[in-house]
């Protein structure tokens, strides 16, 4: 496989997504999955959450939180298929499938975040 001009950019997305998944996901999982439902911390009201999410900065943050880890997955899964299963003849198909899925997921996230009311 040759290294395309895109490789450094795809790796940057992979790297950023990995950082988010490692550092920010645990915080969200702790707050929304444990601390709020178990009453360790007082949960904000539905209205307060809605107002928070309507703010453009929150929407941008959520977009990054969803989109970049998808690209992290895409890059990792691509090499899992390519090296792990050694599907060398399918290299282009695998790349299109993985990054395409990440693009699709990002587009869906953008659509939903844009239309949140």
């Amino acid at each position: 496989m040759t290294t395309g001009r895109l490789t450094p950019f795809l790796w940057t997305l992979f790297s950023a997504g990995g950082t988010i998944a490692a550092f920010l996901f645990p915080v969200h999982l702790f707050l929304i999955g444990l601390a709020f439902p178990l009453g360790w911390l007082e949960a904000p009201s539905y209205e307060a959450f809605r107002l928070l999410i309507q703010h453009p900065v929150t929407r941008l943050y959520l977009f990054a939180l969803i989109s970049l880890p998808l690209f992290h997955w895409a890059h990792r899964f691509r090499y899992t298929l390519y090296d792990g299963l050694q599907l060398y003849h399918l290299t282009v198909f695998i790349a299109v499938l993985c990054y395409g899925a990440a693009l699709g997921g990002s587009a869906a996230a953008a659509y939903m975040l844009w239309n949140l009311r």
Partner: peptide, 10 residues
């Protein structure tokens, strides 16, 4: 090294 190379490419 990759980070340096990626910034350079960018």
């Amino acid at each position: 090294f990759k980070l340096t190379a990626a910034l350079d490419a960018l």
